[in-house]
Nucleic acid binder design. Structure first.
Length: 383
DNA sequence: TAGGCCATCTGGTCCT
DNA sequence: AGGACCAGATGGCCTA
């Protein structure tokens, strides 16, 4: 057993030495490559086999650079071959060097029986690597295309202010959940709760964007950190909160994305929570009159998503109040309560008829608008 | 200038 | 063997 252990140990040390030697060589090669790569030009013939996958000048530049690095590495490896240093495929059963092991020994020349990384093999390796890179690029492009498709069907789309990948996924998840909840309950939600559901777990800029797309003031539905849910909110939206936040996936990254527990959402100041839709309802839109408000003015300007709310001020003029959220609000005033909030999916909940040409894409993406109009009309119209 | 986001390369793993 | 998928590393770009 002792003999076997020693033999194993020796074999392991031999293996480790080979690895150390290889790593040292690779580090030297890579260092050389990176210092030379800016001076190297890529092989046009080789590049031609894969630059057709490239979709932009940036890609081409990147790939040329990397190709140069590969060529440089190739040259270094060729040099190493001549020096006998490049033994990538060493046989582990090499017995003739047991006596000259040392900690800092340079890699020794091996016998001719060792396999070499020949130029042909290196060439094959390079080609394989390049093909794999091209496939990976295509795969990621496909993934990005799919993500772009997703961006177009979630309720907030802008070509100029694209949602990030992670925000797109989160918004899509929220959107799916909200729609599912509507299907499950068969009831129309109130708009604010719907927006809250959409914005759950989103960063502030994305929340701004979504809110702006829906022409809501984020301040009215984004809570502050330290306040509690007003008790008088609970009949109206607490059930929604319980629904909405119970499915929150644990372990979301820390801010800016946040964990979005319910306390994070429903911190609405007592004096303001009931005014979530105030800018839209309080004056020009009598809750019982769903036909009086209509506005055919211009669309609002593009939103800023730079972290500041798009609506930094409450609408002051009748024009703003009317225009800020042109909607019809059918409410059973008595059931909606003084704050105008009814249970989210209650049949008596106020129904919103949203002129979708105003609330969705402000960039005139007609297809997207059609899709979203249909979807949101279905939500806020008679269910 | 730091941090966020992104594209790309790369090596590993699994599957066909 | 080769392709798909994945995650880590890296560097560029942009913005606050």
């Amino acid at each position: 057993m002792d003999h076997m252990a020693r033999a194993g140990s020796k074999a392991w040390e031999r293996h480790a030495r080979v690895i150390r030697s290889f790593c040292k060589t690779q580090i030297i090669n890579m260092t050389k490559s990176y210092t030379e790569e800016t001076m190297m030009s890529s092989d046009p013939l080789e590049s031609a086999t894969w630059t057709d996958e490239c979709q932009g000048s940036q890609d081409e530049q990147d790939m040329e650079k990397k190709g140069g690095a590969l060529d440089s590495m190739q040259e270094d490896l060729d040099e190493d071959e001549e020096d006998g240093f490049n033994r990538l495929d060493e046989d582990d059963d090499d017995e003739d060097d047991e006596e000259d092991e040392g900690e800092d020994q340079k890699p020794k020349r091996r016998g001719p029986k060792k396999k070499k990384m020949t130029k042909a093999r290196m060439q094959r390796f390079k080609m394989r690597r390049q093909k794999a890179n091209a496939r990976e690029r295509n795969r990621m492009h496909g993934l990005n295309d799919a993500l772009e498709s997703l961006r177009k069907v979630v309720p907030c789309y802008s070509k100029t202010q694209k949602l990030s990948k992670i925000e797109t996924l989160r918004l899509a998840k929220n959107y799916i959940w909200a729609l599912s909840e509507i299907l499950r309950s068969g009831k129309s939600p109130d708009l604010m709760s719907f927006v809250q559901a959409l914005c759950k777990g989103l960063s502030q800029p994305t929340t701004n964007l979504v809110a702006g797309c829906l022409q809501l003031n984020p301040r009215t539905f984004l809570p502050e950190q330290t306040q509690e849910i007003p008790s008088h909110m609970q009949p109206a939206s607490a059930s929604f909160a319980a629904h909405t936040y119970s499915y929150q996936t644990p372990g979301l990254p820390s801010p800016p994305y946040g964990t979005m527990d319910s306390s994070h959402i429903f911190h609405v100041k007592p004096h303001s929570y009931g005014s979530a839709l105030e800018p839209f309802f309080e004056t020009a839109l009598p809750l019982t009159d769903c036909t009086s408000a209509s506005f055919d003015g211009p669309l609002s300007p593009p939103l800023s998503v730079n972290g500041n709310f798009s609506f930094k001020h409450e609408p002051t003029s009748e024009f703003e109040k009317n225009y800020a959220f042109t909607m019809h609000y059918q409410a059973a005033a008595g059931l909606a309560g003084p704050q105008g909030h009814a249970p989210l999916y209650a049949s008596s909940a106020p129904r919103c008829e949203l002129p979708m040409e105003n609330i969705m894409s402000y960039e005139g993406h007609t297809h997207h608008e059609r899709v979203m109009n249909a979807q949101l009309n279905a939500i806020f119209h008679d269910s």
